[in-house]
Design a protein around this nucleic acid. Structure first.
Lengths: 171, 171
DNA sequence: ATAAAACTTTACATCTTTGTAATGTTTTTG
DNA sequence: CAAAAACATTACAAAGATGTAAAGTTTTAT
């Protein structure tokens, strides 16, 4: 289970445009230089983002890309989905690579259930985080990012509560 | 962002052994048949699980595999990590595939921060779910799995709370 | 108009993941 | 002790992901 390269680098490019705001504009060359990527690769990433309607392109001499919506209106879920497809293979049990034609668990697949829940958890997290959140996070530079705080204290207790009280109790 | 095949099928094989309990035993052929996988592939999966110390193997005529610990003592995090490695590339910013030698964000990488948080969220979820949970889930057969319940109501509100109150407030 | 700057598209080489094949090693049973 | 059953290991073919290269199209400035 990994973040793919397309997802990560695509997110970086989109963030660069998000920092410029809706009126701003950057060329592929600009972005490639800022993010330390090759021009052709950056081009490919932006092409994907454009087809997903996250950025718009202006061709020609004074051309470039700009973000299509305000950064606080674009969630990470949209971005990751655009770049990497759905988290869980939609036809989990029907497209089975084993010996049989179909997954032996089609009707009662315990794995499927938990993977769906996992995907739901991830998607929930991603849908609550916007590009604006990332930008503000980057501007802080306090040495400790909110993410660090989050992982070492605070939220962990609340989440534990969810898992023990809500989640486990339902099982 | 996807669950890899190794992770999914490996988990299925381990679950099959978990259902047999610590005293039970299954051969590769048994498991392959139960899960609809080829024998060589099943062999590879179990080999990984054995090297991760999740199952033990008995060689020879009456040989087979058995699970090494009680199913309620094995978390999904262990299993997924054993089969697919860490969720986030550990040297995210140092091993960079762009033009430059190192990632341009080494010191202030906003993407890195949020990806860490995401990984933490996923790991937390995985660490709270044991093989026993999956087995009990599979035994129910109520038509609606707990996962479904989880996704359509209950936990969603609580998680929202986390994201809005705890997480966002800290940002 | 024409050249330069910038986006677009397609093709391709490379690397990783997936799954198979084949061969070797260990233990049991007759 | 020899054959069968079962695990172990290594090598390899196929598919997918990654990143590059090259040629094409559009607009602007001169």
């Amino acid at each position: 289970m990994r973040i793919s390269s397309l997802e990560e680098y695509g997110l970086r490019c989109l963030l660069a445009l998000a920092r410029e705001g809706c009126e701003g504009q950057l060329s592929i060359t600009d972005i490639a230089e800022m993010e330390g990527l090759s021009v052709p690769y950056t081009s490919k990433l932006l092409s994907i983002l454009r087809k997903s309607d996250l950025v718009s392109a202006v061709r020609g001499r004074k051309g470039g890309f700009c973000i299509k919506r305000k950064p606080d209106e674009i969630t990470l879920l949209e971005v990751i989905t655009a770049l990497g497809g759905p988290l869980i293979n939609p036809d989990h049990c029907s497209k089975f690579s084993g010996k049989l034609d179909t997954c032996v668990h089609v009707d009662s697949c315990s794995v499927h259930g938990v993977l769906d829940t996992l995907a739901g958890t991830i998607e929930l997290f991603l849908s609550k985080t916007t590009l604006q959140d990332l930008i503000e996070q980057g501007n802080r530079q306090t040495g400790f990012t909110p993410a660090d705080t989050l992982l070492t204290g605070g939220i962990q207790d609340s989440t534990k509560e969810i898992n023990t009280l809500d989640y486990k109790e339902r099982l």
